[in-house]
Structure formats: C-alpha cells, structure tokens
Write a protein that binds this DNA or RNA. Sequence first.
DNA 1: GTCTATAATTTGATAGAC
DNA 2: GTCTATCAAATTATAGAC
Lengths: 253, 253
Amino acid sequence: MPDQKHCPDTHDRILDVAERLFMANGYEGTSMRMITSEAEVNLAAVNYHFGSKEALMREVFRRRLLWLNRERIVLLDALEAAAAGAPLKPSQVLEAFFGTLLRMGEDPALGGMVFLRLLGRTLTEPADFIRTFFAGEYAEVVERYKHALFRALPDVPQEEILWRFHFMLGSMSYALAGTDVLEIVTGYEPGDAMATDPAAARRLSARVMPFLLAGLRAPLPAPLASLSSPSATSGDSCDAPSGASSRVTPSPA
Amino acid sequence: MPDQKHCPDTHDRILDVAERLFMANGYEGTSMRMITSEAEVNLAAVNYHFGSKEALMREVFRRRLLWLNRERIVLLDALEAAAAGAPLKPSQVLEAFFGTLLRMGEDPALGGMVFLRLLGRTLTEPADFIRTFFAGEYAEVVERYKHALFRALPDVPQEEILWRFHFMLGSMSYALAGTDVLEIVTGYEPGDAMATDPAAARRLSARVMPFLLAGLRAPLPAPLASLSSPSATSGDSCDAPSGASSRVTPSPA
DNA sequence: GTCTATAATTTGATAGAC
DNA sequence: GTCTATCAAATTATAGAC
C-alpha cells in the first residue's frame, strides 16, 4: 500500500496521462509504455502505484466519479429539502444530474473535457471489469435519480421513464465522446485543442438540455398494437400531438 | 485479388464471426486468433481473404453499410417524389433514417442485432482508420438527410438541427450498444441471448422514435445570455413551453 | 520510490509446401 | 485455397539492485 506522502507528482501524473490516452485511444488501444513514456516515469511505476493496468483504469475513473456522484447526491438532497415533500420539476432533476456532469467539463481540476470525453466513450466499452466497476459506482445515484424522475413525471409509466433515462444517457454520452459522422456539428477532432476547450461544455449544455427535456416529456408511444408491420410501427402516431396537450402531464408549477 | 467462386463459406464465416467478436470485445480487444479459431478456419485465411485486420474490420462494416445507406437514399428519394416538392414531415425523415436502421435488427440476413450493437459501440471508437472509413461511407446519406431536415423544420436554425441530429445519433448509438448503467432498462447483458433477439429492435423502435421526434422538435434554447452563472444556464427556461406553442414550428400537415 | 533487466505471452503478418 | 511453421515486435508484469 503506497501511503507515503512523498512524490504526489508521479502518482498523479500517471493518472492524468492515462486519462488523456485512454480518452484518445481507448483502454485496449493504450499500452502501459505509452503512458509511462508520456508521463516521463518508469515503466514499473504504474504497477508499483496501482498494481495493474486494470486497477489504473479503475482509479482514473474512481477519483472523478467519487466527486461527480457525491455532488449529484448532495444537489438532489438540497433540491428535495427545498421542495419540502413536493415532487421536483423534470428540469430540476436533469439539471442536477447532467448539469453537474457538464460542469466538470469547465473545470480542469475536475478532469475537464478530457474526462468527459473519456466517460462518454467508455460507457459503450463493455469490458467486463469496467461494467462491473461502473455498476458499483453508479448504483446509489441512479437509484436516487430514478425515483426523483418517477415523482416528477407521475403520469408516465415508470418503465417508460427508465427507457428515456437510458436515451438521455446516450445522447449525452455520444455528444461527450464527440466522434461523430457529422463532423460539421462538433467541429473538432479527437485529441484536438478544441476538443478539450472548457467552453465546449457550456456550448453543449445550452444545446443538449432542451433536447433531453423534450425527449423526457415526449408524448407516450401508441400501446404498440401492430408489431407485425415493421414500416408502420413507429413515428406515424407521434406527429399530431407535439407537447403539453398529450398524455404526459407537464411538471407541476 | 481473391476472385474465385469457390468456398464462399470461409470468406463469409470469417465476416460473421468477426462481426460478433468485434461487437462483444471491440476492435482492439479482438485478436485474429480469436476470430479464426471460432470460425474454424486457418489463421492465414484472414490475411489471404482480406489482407489485414484493419481491412477485415472495414469489410465487416462495408457489406452492411452498403445496404443500409443505399436503402436510406432510396427511401428518401421515394418520400420526396411523393411529396412533389413539399417539405417532408420530421417524422417521415426520422422514420426513413432510423427506422431503416432498426429494421436491420429484425433481419438476421442484414446482420440483425449483432451488427446494430457493433455499429452502436463503434461510433464512439475513434480509431483513425475507422473514422476515416465511416466519413466516406456516411458522406452522401448524411448530406441528403441534413437537407431533408432543414426543409422539414424551416423555423429551426440549421446549426440547431445539426446538433439535434447529433444528439439523436447518440441516443440511438447508445441504445443499440446496450451497455448501460441502468441494467434494469435494457434487461440484457452483452453477448446475452436477449441482446441479439430480433424483437429487441421492435421494442426499442417503439420507445425511441417518440423520444427522438420530441427532442428534434424541442423549444429552442434561450440565446444563451448569461453564461457566467453555471447553475442557471440551462433547463430553467425550458419548462414553461412544452411543445407546439413555442418557437418551433410543428411539421406541416 | 525509482530503475534495469527480463520473464512469459500474445500479437499481426508472412513464407512456402501442398 | 488451405495449411504449418515461424518471424519480429509488442504486450503486461515482476524480480531484485539501489
């Protein structure tokens, strides 16, 4: 157990470089030698400080997710205390969950855009040890926010809310990863300077939050009667009602 | 150039196995030996038929994307011909673009859910050669659908439409990859039987299409005046107007 | 804590017989 | 087209001196 207070440089420099390289090349695409040479530390230092490559990967996430998910809980506690028993507005829940995430992108001390992009791409990398690790790190915060959304949208079936939470995570994850076939949109390349610009988080936030909120409160799909005819199953029933007038109750107040 | 008409088995069996293993383990996480042993072909067969591992990866996608993006163009041509110059409805454009994709998941001959999940996770893997390849494969179809959306939503700034196209791709990509921290939602594990169930595409379609359509037609964000106060930048302005009454013009007819 | 040296495997690719 | 045998390089990890 390395508990010495000396040389926080090496330990943290490894984490910082690993975070950036995992973001740019993925876990499998990044070798220990790439990390140690760029961090200018000895190859054996990684195993000394972290034990293995997998443990390094976990630690890269642990130091960020610890802050993120704790902050999310604190914010939700504060919102619910202020609401005094009343349900929160959907926008409040989304702002607490995704706004906290996006705010990390503006603060290099919290990982900045480098960590956000790493998180975005890692959420679709189903290496077993990462999935297991994430499941543990996210268990509490997901449970809390699920129920906050259930209360915020009492007229939407809970299963539907879970699906939409899923879709919102996807939009955010993909937007953060920032590797799009629509290069025009994001305007940056991976590893680019713009890709790690803290202002990117603010620009993204202004665009994505209305999108997420609208999707979360979308009219309910038809009770999926005719699943036999593929070309008529989806989309057609969703044009006429476009918002507050449909089955979904808008947030109170 | 392998042009012989013999043994389509080996050639195609390599592609099928590679598709499944790349889906489950990613490109870097899948070795040639894993592919050849599972496909029960000789190790040298891959290089004989495809030339290299990178070329194999490209061919895995090429045979699917060729059909997908051609079908998307054909469908859009038909819709625009039927509209006789009038703009399409947003739901028609989404149905042609994403509905075609989801329909691949129901047909094993088109790759089924295995290919859809591979595509979903690969869109966030920014290995250079994959990005370059995708850019070429998607160039035409993206250009066509961009302009179809511009026409379908004449009152939404084009840049905003591009962002929302981006977000929609993200929801879809992430939902297809199916590796979520909300395990309850999807209910399947990667590599699981349920994960490759053709019915999964229909279930997903009924859930995701209304979400995408609502997000695409969300109220426009405030002109982002106060970017200084992070907690008030987003979300708060999006509660009151929840749909058709806002600045976004609903689709014609 | 840092470093050198190296073990033990695995990787993508190829030469050449059949 | 298929196969065996093999190369050259890269990988994670560790032992042991300082």
